[in-house]
Simulated assay, not measured.
Amino acid sequence: MSTTSQTIQEWKQVYELEVFSYCLMTNHVHLVVQANDNPTAIPQLMRRLARRQTRFVNSLEKRSGSLREGRYKISPIDTDAYLLACCRYVELNPVKAGMVDKPELYEWSSYCARVGVSHCQWLDEPDTFRALAGSHQMKIEAYRKFVEQEDASSSDELICTAINSNKLTGGNKLVDEIENRIGIRVETRKRGRPASKK
């Protein structure tokens, strides 16, 4: 897994990406990144991650073949409303998978660095984290409480659905903004004319 971490650190600079959250699981990776205007930056990063991790694991286990099945999934985020929720979703993956009881017990995610348990020199700090409180220690405490809150199931469900369908993580305002910017409908809509009411 350290190979994957090194790849992220190395290529985030090449592709001018900011990495706000990550979680390296045994057979997949979760990332929350801010991309630049280069539309190929994220696809290229994901290809490099897949290749390097495959070589590392195949060498370690004396095997061949691919580790991950299918293409990666991506969901643009309404940063103001959902960025921290997406970071929480990513960092709680090991807890939800039953690998650890608390996110700080999993060393292969950004949570430990975010709350000061460890250090990650290349992890970026989103504006929404900076806005949580005045001092850095107060931000850490606010983020801890945010991650530990128990009423996050609705936002987690929205995020999971958005990721699995490669749709936007956000509300109607973000959908309208993106559609106006690119001139294409990006929201899932039912086909055909709406049913008439009788």
Rank of each mutant, 00 (worst) to 15 (best):
Y111P: 03
H136F: 11
G116T: 01
K139G: 03
A97V: 07
W122Y: 08
Q121T: 14
A97H: 07
D101I: 11
R114W: 00
Y106Q: 04
P126G: 13
E104V: 00
A97C: 08
Y111T: 04
E107H: 01
L132V: 03
D101E: 14
E104R: 01
C120P: 01
D124T: 12
K139Y: 06
A131F: 11
G134N: 15
E125N: 11
H119E: 09
K139V: 05
H119V: 07
C112G: 10
A131V: 09
G134S: 15
C112H: 05
E104G: 00
K139D: 04
C112I: 04
W108S: 04
V117N: 05
P126K: 11
T128V: 12
L105V: 00
Q137G: 12
M138F: 13
Q121F: 13
H136I: 11
Y106W: 09
Y111R: 04
R114I: 01
Q137H: 13
W108G: 02
R114K: 09
F129M: 13
A97Q: 05
E104I: 01
A131C: 10
A113T: 01
M99T: 12
V115F: 06
L123K: 13
D124H: 14
S109P: 01
S110Q: 02
H136K: 12
G98M: 09
S109E: 00
L105I: 01
D127Q: 10
L132W: 03
A97S: 09
Y106H: 08
Y111G: 04
C120V: 03
E125I: 15
D124N: 15
V100G: 06
G116C: 02
T128C: 14
D127T: 08
S118F: 03
L105W: 07
W108C: 03
K102D: 07
C120Y: 02
G116M: 00
D101W: 13
R130I: 09
W108Y: 08
L105Y: 07
E104A: 01
V115M: 08
H136N: 12
D127K: 10
Y106D: 04
Q121P: 10
S118G: 09
A131S: 13
E104L: 00
D127W: 06
K102H: 08
M138W: 11
T128N: 12
C112K: 10
Q137P: 08
D124A: 15
L132G: 01
G134E: 15
Y106M: 04
M99L: 15
V117H: 07
P126W: 11
L132Y: 03
V115Q: 06
S110R: 00
D124C: 15
E107T: 02
D124G: 11
S109I: 02
H119Q: 09
L132P: 02
F129A: 08
P126L: 14
A131Y: 10
V115L: 09
A133P: 07
Q137I: 11
G116F: 00
D124L: 13
M138S: 15
S135P: 08
G98L: 08
W122D: 06
K139F: 06
P103N: 06
D101F: 11
G134Q: 14
S135G: 10
E104K: 00
M99K: 13
S110M: 00
S135A: 10
H136C: 07
L132K: 03
E107K: 05
S110W: 00
